[in-house]
Nucleic acid binder design. Structure first.
Length: 215
DNA sequence: GACCAGGCACATC
DNA sequence: GATGTGCATGGT
């Protein structure tokens, strides 16, 4: 298992190189992006983020004050704009309240507690929480998404019905808990997924991992 | 035109 | 506890 996980990473990294995740200017932008990208193509998310930037609204305070309906209109391109505007609002309340109370933004806390707190926010599930922890707050947690599951399952590393934490454990128990490694690994899996492991028309036989499938 | 995308909450059985 | 459904735009 350990060997195979390392082999996969090595192969992906040598083929695709560093992915430079998460593309954003600020920690806050990463967190907003994590919510906007739920079940959504990143290019659609970028348009929404750009719209917020153009209006100079991409800050906790500005978004906190912005009426939900206006926010919904601005993030339309990211899809699910009604639910996502609600989710952003619930996250902003969490974020802004803490910030306002001068509790040093979720730092210095035990990682498990922090994750549990994020999960109490409506609209933040395991993947969104872990994306925030890893890419915005530099905590060593592995992010699992639909591609990760699909790829692990195809390589026989998990059962098809494995849940989020089972997938996550595979990585966290077998790799060094390193922020840079986890960030790059997840990004590479997404890259591989997009290019070779779509639901329809997967390109297994020309996938960079094809040759190590049974290694 | 169908299918999918860097999920999540909620209803129903 | 498992399984199904709504949410919605834009690219392939």
């Amino acid at each position: 298992m350990k060997r195979k996980l390392k082999l996969i990473f090595k192969r992906l990294y040598s083929v695709f190189g560093p992915q430079h995740w998460w593309p954003a200017d600020t920690v806050f932008e990463i967190m907003v992006g994590a919510i906007l990208t739920q079940n959504t193509n990143w290019s659609n998310v970028q348009k929404a983020i750009l719209a917020l930037k153009e209006k100079k609204l991409l800050s906790a305070r500005k978004l906190y004050q912005l009426p939900r309906k206006k926010l919904a209109g601005l993030i339309k391109s990211a899809g699910y704009y009604n639910v996502k505007s609600l989710r952003l609002k619930s996250f902003l309340k969490f974020f802004f309240d803490r910030y306002a109370a001068k509790i040093k933004l979720m730092d210095a806390q035990d990682l498990k507690t922090l994750r549990a707190q994020l999960l109490t926010v409506k609209g933040i599930g395991p993947e969104t929480a872990d994306s925030m922890l890893l890419y915005a707050l530099n905590k060593p947690v592995f992010v699992v998404d639909a591609y990760t599951k699909r790829i692990l399952a195809r390589h026989g590393l998990i059962k098809a019905e494995a849940d989020y934490s089972q997938c996550q454990d595979i990585f966290m128990r077998n790799l060094k808990n390193d922020v840079k490694l986890f960030g790059e690994y997840h990004a590479l899996l997404v890259k591989l997924g997009k290019d070779y492991c779509r639901k329809q028309n997967p390109k297994c036989e020309i996938c960079p991992l094809w040759s190590i499938k049974n290694a």
